[in-house]
Design a protein around this nucleic acid. Structure first.
Length: 423
RNA sequence: GAGCCCGUAGCUCAGUCGGUUAGAGCGCCAGGUUGUGGCCCUGGAGGCCGUGGGUUCAAUUCCCAUCGGGCUCCCCA
């Protein structure tokens, strides 16, 4: 094997022709469902200012401290976007979308970048779809966000998952809870994992998310935030729960669910699948009532989620769900000789004008080889053109699935193939 | 950032306790059918056995390094 001189960067993959139909089918589903919910698509640059991500996602988060692709051009620092909530909010503020009236219901599909060690379900360039509802603090926005997310998986047929729900509180509730948590954990500091000891100072709530064995005992007995929510946040949480119940969306409360981005307030949720292996989060999201202001806009409540597309496709593969199959060709023209090839080339435009997919040999190979190719391309018909046909004006149209053929005139080709396609 | 496993044909993998021309299935190309695909039969192309170094009379095989891949921890989609 000649060694390839070049290959994709670590953790980045080519999506090959046999895979793109599934991707397009998934994208199609997302676009269709978004339209049903009256969400509008937004597309933003792959690059964003470093400072936006730092402030948006959080200075101390893993994403910012170690997972970012950053570089500098002139005096400006850029990053490849690691997520899209902060950029969408940036766009919302930059273009004064709040001035358009109503709330903004936006969705997106696109590549994200995180400089992590690749493994199953984790790449350095990966794709997410997601949505952001900006301008509403009503629990209905949370419920619709989750309902949209669940609908995508439901439509695809992925049912094997757990929806975890929590409230991480508003700033007031959270400060109170953090203090309670610190008071509880501080006496046990020396018994906690090294990582959790650091977190105790910076962000004690993330200790709840720890998987270190030595932390588990303390986490299990730790006070839970639900007991420290103020009345507003508590009511909000209750309304979200009730809304999901009324929509028959099953969930479980996980008081230890703390997500990786700093901007979440109140509602936080995550969808996990046992079909994914170690990286089991299909999607996650929550409410972020402080982010718009943090990024320079007016105080504006918002909620959203993001879902991993590769992980969704992995789950499909595990569950043997096929989103798309190789598309069949309507007609392949087998041509014999120079005159026949020219004739074939000249008839293709008409076939395509009638919305038929049509192709022919580009290499001048034997009839048998051309028939093989038509078969490989799953062509429904082959049209055979040689000297005889050109002289008599009668062509052989072979039905490849039924293995029979008819002699027809040139003017009958389109109608015959179209008639079969409709039946 | 840390740990473990793996690199042999386009793909999936045998094999070599170190020793003449490295194999299979699938795929590809061609012939059997000088104008007919799928099934079948026959043949063919395609490998410096990831790369570099070491040990040895001899390395695809053993050792070291390196690169690449996979899985795991951490964290996340």
């Amino acid at each position: 094997m000649a060694k390839p001189s070049f290959s994709t960067p670590l953790g980045m993959v080519d999506i090959l022709p046999e895979e793109t139909p599934s991707w397009r089918a998934l994208e199609q589903i997302i676009h269709e469902e978004a339209a049903k919910f009256n969400f509008q698509e937004i597309r933003t640059p792959i690059l964003e200012p470093t400072e936006l991500i730092r402030r948006g996602v959080g200075q101390l988060t893993d994403i910012v401290t170690k997972e970012i692709f950053a570089f500098k051009k002139g005096d400006t620092h850029y990053v490849l976007r690691p997520e899209l909530t902060a950029p969408v909010v940036r766009s919302y503020v930059q273009h004064h979308l709040d001035q358009r009236g109503g709330i903004q219901k936006l969705y997106y599909i696109g590549p994200m970048f995180r400089a992590e060690r690749p493994q199953k379900g984790r790449q350095r360039q990966f794709h997410q779809f997601g949505l952001e509802v900006i301008g509403s603090s009503d629990p209905v926005a949370d419920i619709e966000t989750i309902a949209f997310m669940m609908r995508i998986y439901q439509r695809i047929g992925i049912k094997n998952f757990t929806l975890k729900l929590n409230s991480v509180g508003d700033p007031e509730s959270r400060e109170l809870y953090k203090q309670v948590l610190r008071d509880y954990l501080e006496p046990k500091r020396s018994q906690l994992s090294e990582l959790s000891q650091q977190r105790l100072d910076k962000n004690p709530m993330r200790i709840l998310d720890s998987k270190e064995p030595e932390d588990q005992e303390f986490i299990a007995k730790a006070p839970i935030i639900q007991d420290y929510l103020n009345e507003d946040s508590s009511i909000h949480f209750e309304q979200v729960k009730r809304g999901l119940e009324s929509l028959d969306i099953a969930f479980e409360i996980d008081p230890h669910l703390v997500r990786g981005m700093d901007y979440y307030t109140r509602t936080a949720f995550e969808l996990n699948s046992p079909d994914l292996g170690s990286q089991d989060a299909l999607a996650g999201g929550g409410r972020y009532d402080l982010l718009v202001e943090e990024i320079g806009g007016k105080p504006t409540p918002a909620v959203g989620f993001a879902a991993g597309m590769e992980r969704l496709l992995i789950a499909c593969k595990e569950l043997k769900i096929s989103l798309a199959k190789k598309s069949a060709l309507d007609i392949y023209i087998v041509s014999l000789g120079e005159d026949a090839r020219n004739w074939a080339l000249s008839i293709l435009p008409e076939l395509r004008t009638h919305c038929l997919s049509a192709s022919m040999d580009y290499t001048g190979k034997s009839m048998k080889a051309q028939m093989k190719e038509a078969n490989r391309e799953l062509s429904r018909f082959t049209l055979i053109v040689g000297e005889n046909e050109l002289n008599t004006g009668t062509f052989i149209l072979r039905n490849m699935t039924e293995s029979n053929e008819v002699a027809i005139s040139a003017s009958e080709i389109v109608t015959t193939v179209l008639a079969d396609k409709k039946s």
